[in-house]
Nucleic acid binder design. Sequence first.
RNA 1: GCCGAGUUAGCUCAGUUGGUAGAGCAUUCGACUGAAAAUUGAAGGGUCCACAGUUCAAGUCUGUGACUCGGCA
Length: 313
Amino acid sequence: MTEAGSLIPLLVLVGPTASGKTKLAIDLAQNLNGEVISADSRILYQELQIGVAKPSLSELDTVPHHLISIATLDDPWSLGQYQQTARATILDVSQRKRLPILCGGTGQYVRALLQNWQVPALEEQPRLRTAIENWGEEVGYDQLWKALGIVDAKAAQAIDPRNKRRTVRAWEVILSTGKRFSSRRGIYSSPYNTLTLGLEWPREVLYKRIDQRIDDMFDQGLLEEVGGLIAAGYGKSLKRMGIIGYSELIAYLEGEYSLEEAVRLLKRNTRIYVRRQANWFKAKDPQIVWLKADDPALLENALDRVNSWLNLN
RNA sequence: GCCGAGUUAGCUCAGUUGGUAGAGCAUUCGACUGAAAAUUGAAGGGUCCACAGUUCAAGUCUGUGACUCGGCA
């Protein structure tokens, strides 16, 4: 156990998509001598720009940003890879006497860092994974899960039988490492002393912001971006990853439905995503200090909170 | 004005020979420690346009009225 005083201070900024995290993170970093570390599973990829609302080049110039555009779609990252890199980055920023600001909407990434999940970083094994998926399609994923129960009962117990992806991943890890999927599970204490700020909007207002932002994305050339990715051969893998904004437009460009339908689905899927995000960042979570995002004094409110937190340390 | 079709959940609509209602979408809530914008479970929500009639019983049959959409004048 580490003493509270020796924990690394980490400011965390969470909230649903389109809530204004990017801007607030930059403002906070400028005021607090900080650096922004992204916790977003898609901003990780260098090929994705408009559809994932990646910070602009000028925004990236104002303060140092980390874990943005560092992976490629040819070589998707696992949670373990993200976690390892993020840990090292937080440590590095902190050792340079600057404040690390973890900012992002991927709940799993944030929680894996804050709760210190033990996640070995086995990257995706494309050929093995495809073989397992074919196996699942053939005999049924429930059979895949049952078979998992024989090899690794603990893992099967921890995985919902309906969760195909996690079942496949479990087999992927077992077959490529020769170790049990469940062997590294456990809860460990956090190396960070955190303050978590959350950006809060009334649902209805947030939905309107999302619709507006999606319209803006088209103005910025989202269709061209997606067309370029298809031309570069990424259509299939993007569709497989199921990334909102890309899946829908790829389907449109491939003639599955109209552009109007694609836009409708994009907006709809983003709203559904917001609701799922709320499962990770809950309004009643005592660890999160929720700030009203439409308050003109948002930055001042946030700075007040952060400064009193820093003074305690 | 006449003829026809329609009015059922927030929206689009099903609803068998009469037995007080369903679906999809939307909305809301939940699970998730090795791909997570993924995967996945559940819930709330109806004076069935109104009034009258027939009937033990009407969303369903009959009449009248209101409104909507076509067509004809």
